[in-house]
Write a protein that binds this DNA or RNA. Sequence first.
RNA 1: GCGAGCGUAGCCGAGUGGUCAAGGCGCCUGUCUGUGGCACAGGAGAUCACGGGUUCGAACCCCGUCGCUCGCCCCA
Length: 421
Amino acid sequence: MTIVVFRAPRGTADRLPDEQKYWRFIEARAVGVAGRFGYGRIDTPAFEDSNLFVRSVGEGTDIVEKEMYTFEDRGGDSVTLRPEGTAPVCRAYLEHGMHNLPQPVRMYYFCPVFRYERPQAGRFRQHHQFGVEALGDADPSVDAEVIEVAWELMGSLGLRDVNLLVNSIGDGDCRPAYVERLRDYYAGHQPRLCPDCRERLERNPLRLLDCKVETCRALGDEAPRSTDYLCDGCREHWDKLAGYLDVMGLPYTVDHRLVRGLDYYTRTVFEIQPPDAGGQSTICGGGRYDGLVAQLGGRPTPGIGFATGIERLTLNLKRSEAPVPDEPSPRYLVANVGENARTAALELAVKLRRAGVGAILSSGSRGLRGQMRQANALGIPYALILGDDEILKGEVVVRDMIASAQQSRPLTEFLAEAGGG
RNA sequence: GCGAGCGUAGCCGAGUGGUCAAGGCGCCUGUCUGUGGCACAGGAGAUCACGGGUUCGAACCCCGUCGCUCGCCCCA
């Protein structure tokens, strides 16, 4: 192997030209869907004041405890590479007084996020998310809308075999009581819990529900369900949301084990998973976070959103047979034979490009045969051939690589046509 | 943070102690003196991850390091 001195940092990846078509496709579709629902793009900095994430994501969460890229900058401030997209958007909402805009304020983002994790299939230290946030309206119809955006995105990408899971985890009024019921229930079965779950029993009983160990799963089937312990407000919200989802005809399943790892979620939570649910299978996750903005120091402002992982979407696009359009290649390769012709070919290529037409000059010391091979290998649809004969006559040979047909045309005539189109 | 597997040219991949290492893809050239996709022939490209050890001798055995992959945890 060639000795490589530098390599991309662990958990990061170069995105080579061959990979780009997936990204372009996903971004184009995501932007299209978001636009149809009236969401406007927002870009926030790659790093923020560390406290923004400590306050929002939650002090006890894994993200804050052991996954953040936090460092002191040269001025002595603690900054953190964005580990998720929601908190920065909420910060921007507050900072720019967006409560004065018509509510809800609908925004989407497309950005890299950073978490110091152990890399694995579908998990990276730098990954990219497309996400959507609707801030300032607590109505369940907004929940339904956001879920529909997520669902539409999957459809628009051609990802058909995905499952939409929905749940409500209540709010500050009803969740504490539910969590206690859950704790009591599991405490009664402590001997059958896996070691991790015994730990969770103390720290975060909700997490007991999505344990993957078989015996724990069995217990989870019989466990108290959050939707049975909702307060009146959450109950009404949940019922209305379900009604809206029914009206929209979204094929959702209520999954009472669905909980989320970030502290700020309230009421509605949802996920989209591909059928072959492996370890890192979730391609979209989101929920409502009515307490978050207030927690960041703003007036109480409801919000709901979701994020998708672009790397995971790409993975699923490759697995599925969903058609992904190729990146466009230049229309012309300008082949040439002889020194005079090379100069003429350069001029021709320049003229085409300045007219906005894709053209590359066949390079260097290659014979015409080699140049044609190259046109073929690059998937270029037309080869233009210039040699001494053509120069003398002021012509150019235009070869259609797909039809294997060619004709000689006056150069000026060709340029007038090609440049115009 | 815990557990497992793996590391041979750009990519895939044979080779499990004895001529400084097969084959395939890709790349370049020629057969075809100005023409691609096929075929044939040739060529370039490998300190066999790195370091140490065992041995007369190591890609192959042992130890360490690094990296990658997979699972858990967690999450998109």
